[in-house]
Design a protein around this nucleic acid. Sequence first.
DNA 1: AAGAAATGTGAGCCGCTACTCACACCACTA
DNA 2: TAGTGGTGTGAGTAGCGGCTCACATTTCTT
Lengths: 227, 227
Amino acid sequence: MGERVYHKEAFDRAKPEYRDAVLTAGIAEFSELGLEKANINVIAKKAGVSVGLLYKYFETKEDFFITCVEEATKTLEEIIDGVVNSDDKLLVRAEKLIRAIQATSGADSKYVKLYNEITRLSGNDGAAELAAKVEGLSASTYRNFIEAARKSGDIRSDCDTAMFAFFFDTLLMTLQFSYTCDYYRERLKLFCGDDIFGDDERMVKELLKFIESAFTFEHADVKRLEH
Amino acid sequence: MGERVYHKEAFDRAKPEYRDAVLTAGIAEFSELGLEKANINVIAKKAGVSVGLLYKYFETKEDFFITCVEEATKTLEEIIDGVVNSDDKLLVRAEKLIRAIQATSGADSKYVKLYNEITRLSGNDGAAELAAKVEGLSASTYRNFIEAARKSGDIRSDCDTAMFAFFFDTLLMTLQFSYTCDYYRERLKLFCGDDIFGDDERMVKELLKFIESAFTFEHADVKRLEH
DNA sequence: AAGAAATGTGAGCCGCTACTCACACCACTA
DNA sequence: TAGTGGTGTGAGTAGCGGCTCACATTTCTT
């Protein structure tokens, strides 16, 4: 639990230009090639820094990787959080998030790819800690928000806040991957056809429809419809 | 597009015992360690076969990996498809799928882990082909099924079949990962607490509630509620 | 100014592992 | 029995890449 730090002290003291160059090069390589196929010597060269210095900053390749991930998710969170206003209703918030995700798929795709990469880490790689750091914020944000909406009567009252927050996040997280990561892109194409990437409105409309109904109607309504 | 084959002819002629041993060992190692950290020499030893023979069966490590993935997803599909009856209504089908997924998280977790592993492949690794092979079946099954349900009036009429099939699959796929892969398990815990793994009914109930509403209610209903 | 401490370098070490290959064995065929 | 072609072996190779370390340079301290 003890908040492990994944860089040496020298990295805190490093010149900002070096810090940035190293992180930029790392994020680029790791997001494109993945943890094990990325090459430290290449990253160092691209960052305009010696391998030796890199190893003054980080104990191992893995530590460096995790530091890059932390940086990337921080950036992603800023992009995403930036677009939603705390007063927004659930559906407005959802729409803004969807549109932000669609916009992120271009230039900022490397952050999403890195995020996707950590998704397969296992226990000994520190999956638990990372998950807590990366998902923690959205988990509690969504839970709180949905709980508030439930209490104020904006959405159905018979839902398990935590679970519904989980489903909500699941749809948006996968959407993010579906716009950026190769495998997920293919999957989306298989379901919806190649044109889906040229028709953002279709996705916005249908996903909102799906979410809106899921969050609005109580089980009682279902019963009522059944006969 | 040309249906590449990922094994040499010798593999087709191999004794079933060797075939099975090799695939079993491969699936075990690849699912636990991932494509690049798994060790071919170790796999050969575990399978009780020489490295040389392995390379009579497969051109490269990557080809061997993909063959393992194909085998794993075939098995997974059988498990999953086996539980749903073609006459089932959408909700019944969903419930059976959720329960099958919860059951799979034990002994068969290695298949799911392998499936999760391919999720990060990119273009040059053959992501497109694999996606088509792996997701193709569920994509068309779900689409057809939902389309039928829509026409027969079982579910809302105003939905885009392809998109809703995509959302449906997204929820179930992620659920599968959430019960088996370390990172996704942590994520689920973060949203719903540690007890979620001891309370399968809670998941079944809430996810069904979510899906039921999403698939049942038309936009018109929303408008009606709003004033 | 002198010394200590930190920053920075990059050629090269060395461990690891994907893959090879020369050879042995076996099953046919003629 | 000699020849062909497949099956099976596993010690060995080759090369890749993570990481080190001896050394140079700058910065801080006194």
